[in-house]
Design a protein around this nucleic acid. Structure first.
Lengths: 144, 144
DNA sequence: TGCTTTTTTGAACATTATTTTCAACAAAGT
DNA sequence: ACTTTGTTGAAAATAATGTTCAAAAAAGCA
């Protein structure tokens, strides 16, 4: 039940979809990467395994994975939608270097708690959030 | 020096640009709205005042305003870049209803402080951040 | 002022990321 | 096997934004 592959199979079944070689391959490739991958980047890797797979299928499958709860959309400032495995490992936010683009994942429980509190104060039920911190990493700070 | 218009004039001068009626109009319209406006929405309003203004000019000018520090880019989940006046009034984050899209501006000093702290812990110099909380507003909660 | 240089503008076209259409295909059920 | 339904890849369609380019306008100078 925790294995992404079985989560996906289950999702497939529940929604009367079909498990296909393409979907299987894309899921495999996606899970193997710990990076934040854009659809296009994923597509490149997928093609190395099966050049016949189409770009649209990758887009479609990533959306599926997202719906199934296996992938999570991530938006940096640029116009590209990236995905990260939302697997067992816990939620995190992002600390991005404005100069070199390096992205590190961060988490602060106190912030998480305050976010919840803040939503409640406005009578909202919090379902999710995204937080991006922008700054200069030590390396770039010296470089300039 | 605090007035957005003089800030813009100054910026114009500093960068050997020219103050034109279009830029002036776009700035005026932009300042009059407290909403988070996408370029296209702004364009519609601008056209009511001067139908001759082109879409590209609005895009270009918004980018200028952003560079000049008068406007601030805002990214919700959709692929649209919105702008808000970054004027005198203070920074805020966003609490967005996933159902009806209603957006309210929120701020929690404790969170702000922790963000700073978190960046420092990773040896980053924080230059900015964006935080979006997603949830269900009271109205939509009842509606469903 | 009139001329020159430089920037700006609007329109149309180019680009990027993503979605949709559609005919060919494959899987599942009967 | 036959039908139904979901899937695929390719190509075309969208949507937001950026760029090109010739014409227009501003600023600097003679």
């Amino acid at each position: 039940m925790k294995d992404p592959k079985s989560v996906f199979s289950e999702y497939i079944e529940r929604n009367n979809l079909k498990m296909t070689p393409q979907r299987h391959l894309i899921l495999d490739v996606f899970l193997k990467t710990e990076e934040h991958m854009a659809s296009e980047e994923l597509y490149d890797v997928v093609r190395e395994h099966d050049p016949a797979v189409g770009q649209a299928t990758v887009y479609r499958t990533l959306k599926l994975l997202s719906d199934a709860g296996i992938a999570r959309e991530v938006h940096f400032g640029d116009g590209v939608t990236r995905y990260e495995p939302s697997q067992s490992d816990q939620h995190h936010d992002h600390l991005i270097c404005e100069s070199c683009g390096t992205n590190i994942e961060v988490l602060d429980e106190r912030i998480e708690k305050l976010q919840e509190e803040l939503a409640t104060k406005h009578d909202y039920v919090l379902t999710g959030h995204s937080m991006y911190l922008y700054g200069l990493c030590p390396k770039c700070r010296k470089g300039s």
